[in-house]
Structure formats: structure tokens, C-alpha cells
Amino acid sequence: MKVIPILASAGITGFESPATDYKQLPLSLDELLIEHPSATFIGQASGDSMQGVGIFDQDILIVDRHVTVKNQDIIVANYNGCFVCKIIDTVNRQLISANDSHMNTPIFEHDSFTIEGVVIRSIRCHRQSSILSRS
């Protein structure tokens, strides 16, 4: 990947050419975004319940199964047969939405509940990806 630093100049002559300080760095998006490749999966957010933490409808979620879940982590879980992305409140045993228009969900003993992994990154695509739009 090639990194072109763009620095705004305060002078009246305008901006320097973005290629002036052109550097090529050995950067891999896999290495940058994924910590445990064999324990990581990628999902896609659906809905608006996590907008308060910057996860919007159709965002890509990088979910790590190797990471130990902590209170207030953003997780992907299977809750009564549905995959959900929520904040886990381990103290009060509930799933928290990051949008006031959605109620928090208590986790009861009789619920089927498994944490699939911790969301360690989210990515927003500003143009639709042909890979993600496949049926």
C-alpha cells in the first residue's frame, strides 16, 4: 500500500503537491485490522441500534473470537437464534443498544445466548462493494 501524506499549507501559494513526500510503506490491511486470523470473522451490521458508537447500517464488522470479553465490549452474539451486535453489560446481564430509540435487552436464564466474538474494528464503505452486494 502506498501512503501519500497530505498536509495543508497555511501559505498563500496554495497546497504542496501530495506526491512531494511520497513514501511506500510495507502495510497490509490484514495485519492492520486482524489480530488473530484463525479466530476472526467478518460480518455486516444491519440496522441503526449501534449508531451511538459509530456502527451504522451496512458497516463491516471485524469480530475476534480469541479476545476475552470484558464488560461494555461491543460483541456479536447469538441471542435466541438471532445474530445481534450490542454492547454487553456483564454486570447487569443485558445487551445494550447505542441508540436511544432501541431498548436494552435483559439476558434471562431461559434465553439461548452465546457470544460469538468481540467487535474489534468496524469499517464503513462509502461506495457499495460488489463483493458485499452478492446474493
Rank of each mutant, 00 (worst) to 15 (best):
S28N: 08
A39L: 13
V119S: 14
D64R: 10
I34E: 05
D73N: 10
Q72V: 07
V118E: 04
H66C: 14
A19K: 08
Q24C: 13
I34Q: 04
R124Y: 08
D57P: 00
V53S: 08
H110S: 10
T40F: 01
A8P: 06
H102I: 03
A98V: 03
G47A: 03
A10L: 12
Q94W: 14
D48S: 11
P18R: 05
F113W: 13
V76P: 00
D89F: 08
A10Q: 12
Y22V: 11
I123M: 06
V69F: 09
N99G: 08
C82F: 13
T114N: 10
D48V: 01
A39G: 13
V119R: 00
H66K: 12
T90V: 15
G117W: 01
R124Q: 04
G54A: 09
N80Y: 05
I96M: 13
I96K: 13
D73V: 01
E35N: 12
G47Y: 02
D111I: 09
H102A: 05
I12F: 14
G43M: 03
A19W: 14
A39T: 13
T90H: 15
I74M: 06
N78G: 07
G52Q: 08
V63N: 00
K86W: 01
G54P: 05
Q51K: 10
G43P: 02
P18L: 04
A45P: 02
S122C: 03
I88L: 08
V53E: 11
Y79V: 08
F15S: 15
D30W: 00
V76Y: 00
D89M: 12
V3N: 02
V69Q: 15
D100L: 12
I88M: 05
E116F: 14
P18A: 02
I120Y: 05
S97I: 07
I12G: 07
R121W: 00
F108S: 15
K70A: 12
S46H: 10
S9T: 07
